[in-house]
Design a protein around this nucleic acid. Sequence first.
DNA 1: TCTCCTTTGAAGATC
DNA 2: GATCTTCAAAGGAGA
Length: 548
Amino acid sequence: MPQIEDLGATDELLAFKDEGDQDDKRTASSERDLDDVKSSLVNESESSSDSEADRRSRTDADLQNRIRHSHLFQEALRRQQDGGLFQPSPYVGYPFFMIPDLGNLCGPYLANAALPQSARTYLPFQWPLLDITGRSAIRESATQTHLPPNVVQHPHMTHLHPLLSYSPEAFSPQRASPGFSPDTGMSRSPCYPVSPGGMAQIPHPLGWLQGQTMYPLAGGFSPAALAMNASMSSLVSGSFSPRLVSPPQSSVPHPPFLPSGVKQEPGVSSQTGRSLSDVQRDKDEEKKPHIKKPLNAFMLYMREERPNVVSQCRVKESATINQILGQRWHSLSKEEQAKYYELARKERLLHSKLYPGWSARDNYGKKKKRKRVKSETQFEDEEEFPPQLKRPCEETPHTQTTHPRSHLTQQHTVSHLTHTHLSQASPASSLDSPATPTTALASPAAPAPTHTEHTHCYGGGASPYGEQLQPLSLTTKPHRTPHPLSRITITPEPVTPISSCDTPISSPHMAPSRCSPPPPPLLPPPPTSAHGALTQSQPFSLRRTNQL
DNA sequence: TCTCCTTTGAAGATC
DNA sequence: GATCTTCAAAGGAGA
């Protein structure tokens, strides 16, 4: 069986450890405080087995202790942050927090809607969070698996985003443990369950990326996760000693893990006609942690670059941001993109190790289907669309018409199309697209899209590659109300590097009618041969293998 | 409150 | 095998 080290985790972890060690002295004091707090919390948790009477008698004392711990904790954190959080080292001063019942707060790749949207939206560079069905679910799961929820602070979370950088809105006090102050910002750090019952934040093997995470282990510890856990425990001990903290145990077994027959009743639902067991199964299904898909290269890139775009362009709409990011993605060099592809590959590898039985199919239907609706409307769109705008797609072999989203997501304005695709781009150049980086990467002969080409039509697919990379816009839906971004297709400035946002893309004065024809591409025509032997559907790993 | 928007890539589904 | 569909993140906007 492949080891985690194969994923490159060890190197990252070791690197992290080294950096953490450098900060040992500086944080020794606050560490002790943290240890005190953590020990107290551990003891608190361990004492949960005491009798109810004892517990009642200690209620007041516990309350006082919690308050005291809270203060200690905040003080320790303050020292911690003062001591190193903003030190040059990305890991310096990173606090590890072990909160007994913090497990419900977050986690990667599990999403059962436990966290309100706000709980995640302000963690822009976190690894995908683990959405659990709620605190009770965590506790119940913990009970089922008899696993202590290892609450291990992700050591990389402050790599580029110190805890304090998180928006306060991200924290919901009511989700925190008693005595757990939102002021610390701790809770904004993601914690990742290593099991359905345990939360852990483990350094992601793809260490450099912000918000790296480990994956929660569905159904318990997998060997890979155990290895990671072990590595983590030993590695982080240099700076902070993660400890296993017993969670508040639930006495209510989770239905899915009940012995058959305990809750399931024979018979058929009178209303639905479905057997109760089916209903129960559905309920169980709903309660199962939702394991999210591993992020692909572009998603990883988006996570990293989104804050930059937001700050540089002062844009808030994700749709707009994503368009910019899409353009920037194409502007990345092959090497830069390869970095993300490699990360994504490791992500998938790790994901597959942690969830051997998981399939993307598992998540099918868990989101509201809307693309299909779009595709249904597409027929009408194409019927209504001027044939001259569709023609190139129909005539060119390597057209983006093969792209699944060619008719779904590209809703560029007609004016843009008329200015770009019709007046400038030849069918060959516009449709034989190196649109996807995978395509470009697929061909060693394909020059890296290192263009910093200027564009007037900015957004809505009017990227520097717009004419060459995104012929998808030929299948624009003219009848639809253009997305605000779609109307923003030009920048008044004569030349605007694609990576810059000097002109806010959402500038209201930028209307399609003002979209002037972009300058001729500064880049050589995209390598039409890049498509050659490889298809888009070919797994990137294969493409890269072929490429390399 | 829910869905859409918007991007690219991966993977499953379908033909 | 080619094509289509869904989902992954994000958060504002609109219904």
